[in-house]
Design a protein around this nucleic acid. Structure first.
Length: 871
RNA sequence: GCGGGUGUGGCGGAACCGGUAGACGCGCCAGACUCAAAAUCUGGUUCUGGCAACAGAGUGUCGGUUCGACUCCGACCACCCGCACCA
């Protein structure tokens, strides 16, 4: 028997990787003659090493990229590094390594790891966002945004760490304290750079509708985040009996925003934010207001902190006049739950129809007047207890709104307010402008100069890039750029006098908001090469974790719109298709003192429990968790690859579990994948003498066994194609399993007429269908089958419809909805023929048991059902 | 609190549009090969009863629509995710 020798992935895989590289098969080329396909996985942060979770992400992208390539697409599949950010500075502080060295060392390690995965990546396009060549271009884009008014400076409320002298992100504030310093975090108003994302709020919301190939879940999350609401903005006349306000302030009145103008006649009070301008005026005179503002500034920003915080208010002594009833006065409170940066920072409270207002009213003894009455309830008898009524109904106790349905009342109230010239219909968004200033070293410098005479002056484009200084120290808290002895001292480009460079750097989300465009022409002199982006964009298939469902994806969508407004790009949406893959989880273990253990430190104790392998001490198996260093349940790719090869690891990661779900990494699973890898190898090439020579013509006569094999092959081709297209890799793998088994069985009947031809066809089909997932094995097998071409260069198979059609069909027969038998009829059989076959069936006759058939239902090609009345 | 999702054998999961529930894999059981083991191969494997043919039950729970429901409708339970003082 002339067979291929036992499959040895460790020898085979590097060989083909070298061939691919030498022939530059993954080099992306613009080709007007072919449809293009841009496949992109979210690029990694160079944290040190890749783990299996990354691998799953890239393998999914690689399966798609290889599949599309085989289908004749011109494929762009690049890779780069999201390389700016805090961890590099932390490493600098802890280990005295320069952030650049730390970052580029990590990139070198991770790139080597990725290369071993055999991904079909065009490495000639690689870049890191910390490369001066990249951030220099980003500075150009910043200036474009600045010129377009989309980048601006404003006072923003930030989390300020008074020890580290730095701004913290919300997730860096733990229990109200800085995660690194442990100092109590303050809310501070700082002059910050921001991008005007709110200018596109409506477009970003509208655009979601066009993203048909995005998960519904992500679109919903973005819509909620944008948080569009419709309502009324209007101004109360303000009275100040104690004379605490300057007359101009008082005369301006109090402007509020509400989505429930229908409940205006139920209003019991107004409340303003602690940092509302009126509150600031009052703080100087009313100590209780100052105290409340002080407490609010120190309140943590985390959800739990807000939940725990008592809702409290201070009566300001001011009051407002009810806009529709000049005789009514409402007290004005400063309340810690009113947010300055939503709406107008001031509200009116209607306790009967809002739970929070009700709680507040009960606490401060304010009246509760229901004005929206549920349908069918007597207004006189409708009393609010401990729960506010937030449903619909008809208006009562509401003057000109009485009797209207709630929605109509909203419109009527708004119309009246507009007629009075006191207010207007308003659309409001929860979305806020994107603060991009970071007081950090390891980020893209913001290319502006602050001049005492000229103000904010952009760095002239000819002077770009503004490079990060290399000689920085991290031994002081705060921003190393601000501490640098000379870097920030420059002459003003406009007047020449001594000025100061901006020392804030850009949020790293800016770096990742346009990298996909840079990949189209990574070496172009301009940030964005129009010809290249016009050809490649949008990204056809973007793949990454759901954790980026909101920020990264929303920022990128904004950036594309901003760049389009600047005339830099001609594109509506950056990512036409999005797939969010699940995480890789792994069992966790702890010792009896609760310390996490590495999986390889524990073994089964033989009694259903676990113990520490080295000491025999008891261990506890914890829950399945997302892999993380702190829980010690990470799996590194190298040992897996050394033991089983890359292809088996790739196979495991796309088998069994649907790609969007979390997958559990198990030893048994990778062993199963390894077994199948070898089984597939044997199915293709165990006995090459049983196969017709490559390119041999199809014999005129095929025995039934050979026909059956050909049909199985073509059905598998059709099924695998559809499964990969629909991201159902687990099903595609199942089809491969089936075909493999079928081929192995068919080998036992190789003497049947035409079987050598059918077996050759089947072996080649296995190679090609397996190639996206097991590319190295596929190349090796393809070559062993006598080809001097590459399987990656051979086109995807198309199933012959004549062979995917059945010529017989199996029709299950139900009696009263229970399956009792099945019949076999020719493919085209009509209802009468099916009915005759059903009635002739022995099992049916037995099951009928003398009952009479009252109805015969036949769903063509599917099922027959007899409705029977017992005899 | 608001919004969304998920729930199917011992396990991961399949089942297109309302039409044979459990494809495929893991695990387990039995057998073949072997001095033996590993590897490999073959068969079995939802549960209950039965030697079997077969019968009954069965897709989180309860109810409904239908000739027929994992699939549709109503109520509920459990778990997961996102947002959360948004006026």
């Amino acid at each position: 028997m002339i067979g291929m020798s036992r499959y040895n992935p460790l020898a085979v895989e590097p060989k083909w990787q070298q061939v691919w590289e030498a022939r530059e098969v993954f080099r992306a080329r613009t080709d007007a003659g072919r449809p293009k396909c841009y496949v992109l996985e979210m690029f990694p942060y160079p944290s040190g090493r890749i783990h299996i979770g990354h691998v799953r992400n890239y393998v999914m992208g690689d399966v798609v990229a290889r599949f599309k390539r085989a289908q004749g697409y011109s494929v762009l599949h690049p890779m780069g590094w999201d390389a700016f950010g805090m961890p590099a500075e932390n490493a600098a502080m802890e280990r005295k390594v320069h952030p650049a060295k730390w970052t580029y060392d990590n990139i070198a390690v991770m790139k080597a790891q990725l290369k071993r995965l055999g991904l079909s990546i065009d490495w000639s396009r690689e870049f890191a966002t910390c490369d001066p060549a990249y951030y220099a271009q980003q500075q150009q884009l910043f200036l474009d945004l600045l010129e377009a008014g989309l980048a601006y400076r404003r006072q923003m409320s930030v989390n300020w760490d008074p020890v580290d002298h730095t701004v913290l992100a919300n997730e860096q504030v733990i229990d109200g304290r800085g995660w690194r310093s442990g100092a109590l975090v303050e809310k501070r108003q700082l002059e910050q750079w921001a991008f005007r994302i709110t200018a596109f709020a409506e477009e970003l919301l509208e655009g979601l509708k066009s993203l048909e190939r995005w998960p519904e879940k992500v679109r919903l999350m973005q819509a909620n985040w944008i948080g569009r609401s419709e309502g009324l903005t209007f101004t109360f006349a303000l009275e100040d009996p104690a004379g605490r306000l300057p007359e101009a302030e008082r005369a301006e009145g109090l402007t509020v925003y509400t989505t429930r103008p229908d409940t205006l006649f139920g209003a019991a009070f107004c409340a303003i934010a602690p940092d509302h301008p009126l509150a600031r005026h009052l703080a100087a005179q009313v100590p209780a207001v100052a105290a409340l503002a002080e407490r609010a500034a120190h309140l943590g920003t985390s959800a739990e902190a807000l939940e725990r915080a008592e809702k409290e208010g201070v009566d300001t002594g001011l009051c407002v006049v009810h806009p529709f009833d000049p005789d009514r006065r409402l007290p004005v409170y400063v309340a810690n739950f009113v947010l300055m940066d939503y709406g107008t920072g001031a509200i009116f409270g209607c306790p009967a129809h809002d739970q929070r207002d009700l709680d507040f009213a009960r606490k401060y003894g304010l009246p509760v007047r229901p004005v929206v009455i549920p349908e069918g309830v007597d207004p006189a008898g409708f009393v609010i207890g401990e729960e506010a009524y937030t449903g619909g109904g008809r208006l009562a106790h509401s003057d000109f709104l009485d009797g209207l349905e709630a929605e109509a009342a909203k419109a009527a109230a708004i119309d009246r307010m507009e007629a009075l010239g006191r207010g207007r219909r308003t659309v409001n968004y929860r979305l806020r402008d994107w603060g991009v200033s970071r007081q950090r070293y390891w980020g893209c410098p913001i290319p502006v100069i602050h001049c005492p005479a000229c103000g904010v002056v952009p760095v002239p484009r000819a002077d770009l890039p503004v490079l990060l200084p290399e000689d920085v120290s991290f031994d002081r808290p705060g921003n190393p750029l601000a501490h640098h002895p000379s870097w920030s001292h420059v002459a003003c480009p406009s007047c020449g006098c001594l000025a100061r460079r901006e020392t804030d750097t850009l949020d790293t989300f800016v770096d990742s908001s346009w990298y996909f465009a840079r990949f189209c022409a990574p070496h172009a002199a301009e940030p964005i090469d129009r010809a290249a982006t016009d050809y490649w964009l949008p990204v056809d298939q973007y793949i990454g974790g759901v954790e980026h469902a909101i920020l990264h994806l929303l920022y990128s969508r904004f950036f594309v719109r901003a760049l389009k407004a600047c005339g830099k790009i001609g594109l509506a949406e950056p990512f036409a298709g999005l797939f969010t893959q699940g995480m890789v989880c792994h069992a966790t273990y702890k010792d009896d003192r609760g310390a996490w253990l590495f999986p390889e430190e524990v073994e089964e104790d033989g009694a259903g429990g676990w113990r520490v392998a080295s000491t025999g001490a008891p261990a506890i198996a914890g829950p399945l968790e997302k892999m993380s260093k702190s829980k010690r349940n990470v799996v590194a790719p190298e040992p897996i690859i050394e033991a089983y090869g890359v292809d088996s690891a790739r196979l495991f990661l796309v088998s069994d579990t649907p790609p969007e779900r979390d997958i559990e990494w198990t030893q048994a699973g990778i062993e199963g994948a390894w077994r199948f890898t070898h089984r597939l190898w044997r199915a293709i090439g165990e006995d090459l003498s049983a196969l017709a020579p490559a390119g041999a013509p199809m014999p005129a006569e095929l025995a039934p066994e050979a026909m059956a094999l050909r049909k199985a092959v073509h059905k598998a081709v059709a099924a695998v194609t559809e499964d990969i297209e629909r991201f159902r890799f687990n099903r595609a793998v199942a089809r491969l399993h089936e075909l493999t088994t079928t081929v192995i069985e068919a080998r036992g009947r190789s003497e049947a007429g035409g079987m050598t031809y059918a077996l050759r066809e089947a072996a080649e089909a296995l190679c090609r269908l397996a190639a996206p997932v097991l590319p190295h094995l596929a190349e090796e097998a393809w070559s062993a089958l006598g080809h001097d071409t590459l399987v990656i260069d051979s086109p995807w198979l198309v199933a012959d419809p004549a062979l995917t059609r059945e010529d017989e069909m199996v029709i299950p027969v139900q009696i009263n909805g229970k399956r009792r038998s099945e019949i076999v009829v020719p493919a085209g059989a009509d209802e009468a023929a099916v009915r005759a076959a059903v009635m002739a069936d022995e099992a049916v006759a037995r099951a009928l048991g003398g009952g009479s058939v009252t109805k015969f239902i036949y769903v063509p090609g599917r099922i027959a059902n007899l409705v029977v009345r017992p005899g």
